[in-house]
Structures are given as C-alpha cells and as structure tokens.
Write a protein that binds this DNA or RNA. Structure first.
Length: 186
DNA sequence: ACATTAACAGGAA
DNA sequence: TTCCTGTTAATGT
C-alpha cells in the first residue's frame, strides 16, 4: 500500500522505481483501476491543494520505491519556487490531455487500440520520465487498467506484437514503437 | 459478432 | 507454492 483512500493527506507522493496503480473499491466491493503510475510519476497534488482526505488507494504492483514529500515542503515549494510551479502546471496539463485522449479511444476505438494506447500512456515522457522500454506488468493488470478481460488483453498484445509495435514476455511487455502504439487506430 | 466469466493445465518465478 | 499465460466452453449483450 503506497497510500490509502480516506486518510488525511500529509504527503505528495512520487514513484521512484517500480509500478503502482491508482484504484478504488466500491461499496459493494468491486474494484476499479483508475490509472497506472510507473517510475517518475507524481500524484496527490489535488488533495494537497484542496486539503481533503485522499480520494483513492495506491498500491504497488511489484517491488516499488516511493518518495513522500511532506505537505509543508510541498506548500513551501508552491509559494517560493517558480520551477516547481511550472512542473506542476505541466503535469496537470499533461494529465488533462491524457484524459481527453482516453475518452477518444474509449468511445471510438477497439480493444487493441485501447491496450496499445494504455501502454503508450505509461511511457509518457513528461509524466513518467523514468520508464524504461520494458514494462513489468501482467496482462491481468493491463485488463484492469483498460477495462478489458485478461483473455482479450492477451489477444490484443499478441496482435500488437505481430505488428511489431511491442514484444510480450512472461509478466512484461517491451515497447518497440512508442509512436506506433500511441497513434494506433486500427 | 464479439466480449466476458469460469475453469483448467502448463510453465515461471 | 503462488503467479502468469494460453486455451476452451458457456454465457451475455
């Protein structure tokens, strides 16, 4: 557990290495995966700015190191450091773009495109500058991330592999053509 | 059609 | 042993 929904927010959190996912559990016990956070990703500024309890769970999907920036330091940087503010602005803007893109793929593209773009998202160089070419994630988790079944994800990644956009290994995928994945529409 | 759940077997870690 | 993958059959929309 990197952080837990409902508890007071005392840190701005970054993933140094490894992989985490942001998720929620409904009242009936159904779990929703909201997004993956690979190495280099930061999150939680929203709750810090609004001073509200955390809105989601973040759990590590494998061995992961996280950095916890105290709320006081976060606010001090916000008040005193232009570069930090620019970073936050860039990050928020990039997330908004991600959200718009997600709606597009969700509504007019098929499962392989959703898987392709979901993987490409995790390699966004602005949000997650530390992601290597190899992404250690199970097909099951990709399914939770894309809202597809594990079986359908399996089909999709193999199709993408056949098109030389990525390669699949046990418990991981390796990106061959990031641009190809990000713009996949067929 | 096409995706999902469920179940199982084989292989990796 | 536990987790991950690749299949198949049944079910649902």
């Amino acid at each position: 557990m990197v952080c837990q929904r409902g508890v007071a927010v005392e840190h701005w959190i970054g993933i140094i290495d490894g992989l985490a996912k942001m998720s929620n559990v409904s009242f009936e016990g159904k779990s929703v995966t909201l997004t993956g956070i690979p190495a280099g990703g930061w999150f939680g500024e929203g709750s810090l700015l609004k001073n509200e309890p955390r809105r989601y769970d973040v759990v590590a999907l494998r061995a992961t190191r996280a950095a916890y920036v105290p709320a006081r330091l976060f606010h001090w940087l916000l008040d005193n450091n232009i570069a930090f503010n620019r970073f936050l602005l860039l990050q928020l803007n990039e997330r908004l773009g991600q959200f718009i893109g997600l709606l597009e793929t969700e509504r007019l593209l098929g499962p392989e495109a959703r898987v392709a773009r979901c993987i490409a998202q995790l390699f966004n160089p602005l949000l997650y500058p530390r992601t290597g070419a190899r992404l250690q994630i199970s097909q099951n988790e990709l399914g939770l991330l894309t809202g597809l079944s594990r079986q359908r994800v399996n089909q999709a990644v193999r199709r993408l592999e056949a098109e030389a956009l990525l390669s699949v290994e046990y418990g991981s995928v390796t990106v061959v053509s990031l641009a190809g994945l990000a713009g996949y529409d067929g």
